[in-house]
Design a protein around this nucleic acid. Structure first.
Length: 810
RNA sequence: GCGAAAGUGGCGGAAUUGGCAGACGCGCUAGACUUAGGAUCUAGUGGGGUAACCCGUGAGGGUUCGAGUCCCUCCUUUCGCACCA
C-alpha cells in the first residue's frame, strides 16, 4: 500500500501543525509539574540562512527538552533574538535599509527555518533585544548599576577599532585584533562608560567551583579573571633633584625581594618623566616614541626584549641596595602598578632582560642548576637574604610581607587581570545609555518612569569616527531638560555594546510580557536555567558578563540566585571542506555551507535531526559527510516498515528475547542521554531495529510502544505518526519516559572469553554469576581452549566474573 | 613558550573506564530481486598468510595474568593563553 511507505514530506508538516494547534510547546506558569528550563544561546538574526552547522546546535537542546518533557517536567524552551549590533547597522549603511526593518525581515526568515527543524520553542515568550519593551529593562539595569556606583564614566585610553569606529572592551580584542571584524586594534583616549565588573572578581572566581560546567570553560574564566596573590612593595626612587619619590611595585614573589637588581617601569608610567636624567632624556624619548608607534599586534609578535635606562636609581627597602630604574615595554601599565622589581635570578623575563643589558643577577633562592643560564622559578631555601636566609621560600613569602607591613613599606595584596568593562560604543544600533549630562548636576540617570530612552531614527547610521556616536548629530533628541534641576542638559549619545542585551535575556523569558518588573513573581519559579547549550566561543565574554549581571541583580533583590546557568554544555561545530581545500568551520564566509533545505526535502527533518546527532560526539567538532544522512534515513525507513507491517497483528506476549532487547534499548538510550553521548543513542536504535527485524516475528505491542516513546525526542514526527497509526491518541509526548527492568538487562547466560597467556583462544557460554571452578571446567572442555592446555601446566589462573578467564601456562 | 584536549580500519566513530579492539553508520565486494538500479534485500569487509597462525589503537619504554584505557619519554593535530611580574 502506498500509504505504508515512510512519507516524511507528508507527515512532518502535519505534526508540526498539530503541536502548534495543541500549544504543546507553551510553558504555562500554572502547570503543576516541576519545571525544567532548557536554553539555547539565542542567535543574532543574520540575513544568510541556516546551514547544517547551525542545525546541530538547535537539535540537541530540542531533543533534550523533549526528553525532559517525557520525564514529567514542564519544560521552558524559549527562543529570541540578539538583534542589536554592527551587522544590522552595516547592512543599513550598505543597503540603505533601516536596521529595525532589516532585523525584522531576518527574524521572519530565521523563524521559518527554525520551524523546519521541528523544534518546540515557546514562541509566546520570544524576546528581542531591540524591542523598546525589552531594552527598557536593559537600560533599567544600567540605571541601577549607576546608582550602585557600578557604572562610571572616565577618560582613558581604550581599545579602538578603526574599522568599526568604536571603542571596544578588552574581551573584544583577540590577539590584538577586533573580535568582530578582525581589524588591528589601536588605542584612543576616550571618555567612556565603564562597568565595575572587577568588584565581582572574587565572586565570579569562587562561584565557578560549584557550577556544572565543562572544566575548560571554568579554566578560561578563571584565567581571564587572573587572580594572583602577592605583595605591593614601595621602593624609594631618587629623582634627578636628589629627592625621593615612592614607586610601588607588585610582586607574587616577595621572597625574592633581596634579589631585585633593577627596577622596570612601564613606558606609560607617570614617573618616567621625573626619573629620566638629562643625560638619558634623548635615548628615553626615542624609546618612548618607538613603543608608541607599535600596535599591540607588533608588540605581541616581538620576541626580543627592549628597554632604556632612565639614569635614576631606587632603593630596595629590604637591603637598601641602590638599583637602576629602567623602562621597558615588557612591563604593562595596565597590570598591577605598572612597575616591577626585577629579579633576574628567579624570573625568566627579567633574566632575559638582564642578560641582554648586562645587569647583575643575584641568586636568593638556592637553585639546583644555578642561575647563570636560566632563571630558577621554583621554591627553595632562601640565601643572600639577610635575616631571612636559611628559611624555605614558601615561608619567606609571608614572613617578608609581615616584615614589610611592620615597616610600612609594603603589604599583602591581590591583583586581577580582569579589568573594568568598557561599556560605551560610538555606534547607532544599540541601547542608548540612559544618562543625561547636566552642567550643574553632572551625570543624572533618566527617571525610571521615563524608560525606555528610545533609539531615535536617524538619516545617517555611519559611525562618525570622531569618538561620538551618530546620535550626537540629532540635536532635538540630544537636548533635554535635566531630570533633577530642569535646566538645559544633553543626553548621553553613546550606546551599549551588543553584550548588554544578551547579559540578562535568559531572565526575561520567565516573564517576557511583565511590564512592572524585569521578572514577575509568577515568572521567578522558572529560574535559573537548568541546562544552557551553546558554542564554546562564548566561554569568556557572554558567560562572564551574564554571571556579573545576574550577581548584581541578585544583590539588588531582582532574582534570588547569583548564578544563572546551573549546567552548561558546549556543542562542537560542524566542519566541512571549504573552497581553500582544507577542512574548516562551516560558514558562509568560508564558502562551505551545506544547505539543509534539500536534505529535509529528500530525507526529512527527522533523518537530518538524527544524523546531526549521529555525526559525532556532541562536544567535539564534526566533519560533515554528505552520504552519512542516507544511513539514518534507511534506518528510519526500516523501522517504519517494521512497525507498519506488524501493525494490528502484534504477538500476544513478548518473547524473552524481545523483552531483553526492549529493556536494553531503554537502558542504553537513557544512560547515553544522561551522559550526553547522543551519537551512540542513534546506534542503540539502529542495533535494536537490526535485531528485531532479523527475528522475523511480530513484536508485541508494548515493545513497539516503548520504542516509539523512546525515539520521540529524536525523530518526533516519525514517532507521532506511528503512534497514531498504531491506534494511539493523543500525542506520543503525553506518554512518560519508559523505564527498564534490570532482570532483563542482565542476561542469565554470559559469554566468557578464555585467554591463554593473554591471548584469546576461545569463548564459552556459562550461567551468569558462575563460579570460577565451573567456568574452569567449561573452559577445559572447550576444544579451542583444550588444545592449548594439552601437556601444559597451568601456572596461574585469573577469573573476572562474567567477563574473562586468563590461564597462564608453561 | 605555557596550559588543555585529542591521535583507533579506506572514512565518521564505538569500547560497560584495566578484561573478546573496531559496535553503529558511510564506503567497498559478492549475490538475490529487477527492463534497469544511484531502490531494496542477503552475505562479507582491520592488515598479512593456502592454512595453523601472526601482526595490529601516533612512536618508544614501563606497570600488570591482561593496556586503546594506567605511568614515563617523544612526535603530530586542534583549541585556549601569550611578556599579567
Amino acid at each position: 500500500m502506498a500509504d505504508d511507505f515512510y512519507n516524511h514530506q507528508e507527515i512532518e508538516p502535519k505534526w508540526r501543525e498539530y503541536w502548534r494547534d495543541q500549544k504543546l510547546h507553551e510553558a504555562r506558569d500554572d502547570d503543576p509539574r516541576p519545571k525544567y528550563y532548557c536554553l539555547d544561546m539565542f542567535p543574532y538574526p543574520s540575513g544568510s540562512g541556516l546551514h547544517v552547522g547551525h542545525w546541530r546546535s538547535y537539535v540537541l537542546p530540542d531533543c533534550w527538552s523533549r526528553y525532559k518533557w517525557l520525564q514529567g517536567y514542564k519544560v521552558l524552551h524559549p527562543m529570541g533574538w540578539d538583534a542589536f549590533g554592527s551587522p544590522a547597522e552595516n547592512d543599513a549603511i550598505k543597503k540603505g535599509i533601516q536596521p529595525a526593518i532589516g532585523t525584522r525581515n531576518n527574524i521572519e526568515n530565521f523563524k521559518r527555518q527554525l520551524n523546519e527543524i521541528g523544534a518546540i520553542y515557546d514562541w509566546t515568550r520570544e524576546v528581542n533585544t531591540t524591542d523598546p519593551g525589552y531594552y527598557k529593562w536593559t537600560q533599567w539595569i544600567f540605571v541601577q548599576m549607576f546608582k550602585h556606583d557600578l557604572a562610571y564614566k572616565t577618560f582613558m585610553p581604550v581599545n579602538w577599532c578603526p574599522s568599526c569606529k568604536t571603542g571596544i572592551a578588552n574581551e573584544d580584542v583577540v590577539n590584538g585584533r577586533c573580535e568582530r571584524c578582525g581589524a588591528e586594534v589601536t588605542k584612543k583616549e576616550l571618555n567612556q562608560w565603564m562597568l565595575r565588573i572587577t568588584r565581582y572578581a572574587d565572586r565570579l572566581l569562587d562561584n565557578l567551583k560549584d557550577l556544572d560546567w565543562p572544566d575548560k570553560v571554568k579554566t578560561m574564566q578563571a584565567n581571564w579573571i587572573g587572580r594572583s596573590e602577592g605583595a605591593e612593595v614601595t621602593f624609594q626612587a631618587i629623582k634627578t633633584d636628589g629627592t625621593h619619590v615612592p614607586v610601588r611595585i607588585f610582586t607574587t614573589r616577595p621572597d625574592t625581594l633581596f634579589g631585585a637588581t633593577y627596577m622596570v617601569l612601564a613606558p606609560e608610567h607617570p614617573l618616567v618623566g621625573e626619573l629620566t636624567t638629562a643625560g638619558r632624556r634623548d635615548e628615553v624619548q626615542v624609546y618612548l616614541d618607538k613603543v608608541k608607534s607599535e600596535s599591540d599586534v607588533d608588540r605581541a609578535a616581538k620576541t626580543e626584549k627592549t628597554g632604556a635606562f632612565t639614569g635614576s636609581y631606587a632603593i630596595n627597602p629590604v637591603n637598601h641596595a641602590k638599583i637602576p630604574v629602567w623602562i621597558a615595554d615588557y612591563v604593562l601599565m595596565g597590570y598591577g602598578t605598572g612597575a616591577i622589581m626585577a629579579v633576574p635570578a628567579h624570573d625568566e623575563r627579567d633574566h632575559e632582560f638582564a642578560t641582554l643589558f648586562g645587569l647583575p643577577i643575584v641568586e636568593v633562592i638556592q637553585s639546583p642548576a644555578g642561575i647563570e643560564k636560566e632563571a630558577y622559578c621554583g621554591e627553595g631555601t632562601m640565601i643572600n637574604s639577610g635575616e631571612f636566609t636559611g628559611r624555605p621560600s614558601t615561608e619567606g613569602k609571608t614572613a617578608i610581607v609581615v616584615w614589610l607591613q611592620a615597616k610600612g613599606v609594603g603589604k599583602g595584596t591581590i591583583n586581577y587581570k580582569l579589568r573594568d568593562w568598557v561599556f560605551s560604543r560610538q555606534r547607532y544600533w544599540g541601547e542608548p545609555i540612559p544618562i543625561i549630562h547636566c552642567p550643574k548636576c553632572g551625570s543624572v540617570p533618566v527617571d525610571e518612569k521615563d524608560l525606555p530612552v528610545r533609539l531615535p531614527e536617524v538619516e545617517r547610521y555611519q559611525p562618525t569616527g570622531t569618538g561620538e556616536s551618530p546620535l550626537a548629530a540629532i540635536v532635538e533628541w540630544v537636548n533635554v531638560p535635566c531630570p533633577k534641576c530642569s535646566g538645559p542638559a544633553k543626553r548621553e549619545t553613546d550606546t551599549m555594546p551588543q553584550w548588554a542585551g544578551s547579559s540578562w535575556y535568559f531572565l526575561r523569558y520567565a516573564s517576557p510580557h511583565a511590564t512592572g518588573a524585569l521578572v514577575s513573581e509568577e515568572g521567578k519559579p522558572w529560574l535559573p536555567i537548568d541546562m544552557y547549550v551553546g558554542g564554546i566561543e562564548h566561554a569568556v565574554l557572554h558567560l562572564l558578563y551574564s554571571r556579573f549581571f545576574t550577581m548584581f541583580l541578585c544583590d539588588i533583590g531582582v532574582v534570588p540566585f547569583d548564578e544563572p546557568f546551573k549546567r552548561l554544555f558546549n556543542q562542537g561545530m560542524i566542519t566541512y571542506i571549504g573552497k581553500s581545500g582544507k577542512v574548516e568551520k562551516m560558514s558562509k564566509s568560508k564558502g562551505n555551507v551545506v544547505n539543509p533545505d534539500g536534505l529535509v526535502q529528500e530525507f526529512g527533518c527527522d533523518s537530518l535531526r538524527m544524523y546531526e546527532l549521529f555525526v559525532g560526539p556532541p562536544e567535539l567538532d564534526a566533519e560533515w559527510n554528505d552520504k552519512g544522512i542516507e544511513g539514518v534515513y534507511r534506518f528510519l525507513k526500516r523501522a517504519w516498515h517494521w512497525v507498519t507491517m506488524h501493525n494490528g497483528r502484534w504477538s500476544a506476549a513478548p518473547s524473552k528475547e524481545m523483552l531483553v532487547l526492549r529493556h536494553l534499548l531503554v537502558k542504553n538510550v537513557t544512560d547515553r542521554l544522561e551522559s550526553f553521548r547522543m551519537n551512540t543513542i542513534v546506534s542503540s536504535f539502529m542495533e535494536f531495529v537490526n535485531e528485531v527485524t532479523s527475528m522475523r516475528k511480530a513484536p508485541d505491542k508494548a515493545t513497539v510502544e516503548v520504542f516509539l516513546v523512546a525515539i520521540a525526542p529524536f525523530a518526533p514526527h516519525f514517532a507521532e505518526e506511528l503512534w497514531s497509526r498504531t491506534g494511539h491518541s493523543p500525542s506520543v509526548f503525553f506518554q512518560s519516559w519508559p523505564k527498564w527492568d534490570e532482570t532483563y538487562t542482565t542476561a542469565d547466560t554470559v559469554t566468557v572469553a578464555v585467554q591463554i597467556n593473554g591471548k584469546l583462544r576461545g569463548t564459552i557460554v556459562v550461567k551468569a554469576e558462575a563460579g570460577e571452578a565451573e567456568v574452569m571446567t567449561a573452559a577445559s572442555q572447550n576444544p579451542d581452549v583444550a588444545r592449548y592446555l594439552d601437556g601444559k601446566q597451568i601456572r596461574k589462573q585469573v577469573y573476572v566474573k562474567n567477563r574473562i578467564l586468563n590461564l597462564v601456562v608453561s
